[in-house]
Design a protein around this nucleic acid. Sequence first.
DNA 1: CGTTACCTGAAA
DNA 2: TTTCAGGTAACG
Length: 278
Amino acid sequence: LPELPEVETIRSDLVPLLTGKRILSVWVADDATRLLPHSTPELFALSVAGSTIEALARRGKYLVFTLSPQSSVLSPRFWIVHLRMTGRLLCRAASDPPDAYVRALVTLDDGHELRWSDLRKFGTWELADSLADLERKLGPEPLGDMFTVEDLQTMLLRRKAPVKAVLLDQKTLAGLGNIYVDEALYEAGVDPRRVANSVELAETTRLHAAIRSVLEQGVANRGASFSDYADASGAKGSNQLYVRVFRRTGKPCYTCGAMIERCKTGGRSTHFCPVCQK
DNA sequence: CGTTACCTGAAA
DNA sequence: TTTCAGGTAACG
């Protein structure tokens, strides 16, 4: 569900609610089998209880909580959250009505709690003393100054997979997923099935601008809620109303009127205009 | 490099 | 009953 714009919406909503708050306790359900791949509910709770949330950042599709240092030996600086397909981080008053599929709970010192809801149980929570491991698996931030046309061209020239598959690879760029890749390729007029190293500089230039613009639009519209995505208060985004190709199979292209087609590329459902995208 | 597995529920 | 879902890691 969540790609860069969705995760960024959650982050920016949570910052004023969580910064400076202390974690009192953590509960993890027995059936949250994959949530803590490198820990146990007991160890995790012991490690973060008593910490203060100093900051909340986003890196690609990851949320990164900076925790205050503790006197205890167990004192990781970072709590790294990935929502995968159906994860939600909901900030609620403890007295608010229950939410569906809540599999973990973080109690805060101001009467609020962070509820972790995850229908499909793919999401992960990890603790780390440094962000080096995270950085190793991620490319640049597509909305940052470090991401240039030249970077993108270099990354595309190195690969012979379909350009869509390369853009989905988080080592190429951190934060693009199936919605925004389809949207960016449409806006740039590039066929998603093209071999990446056949994309020419003029096309890469358009693609670079398109990636930024579709992500910025996504953030401005508070993310796309095609099915499961909800922000930290449980509300849906609106960007699903503004997409040009994603899940518009059989509908007319807004530019040329041709029918939007769907195919499989890089193992993912792919939407494109057969006329506008070359 | 492409395919599969991980889960659950909705839709075809 | 089968297929599909916005993600990623582990396969071959």
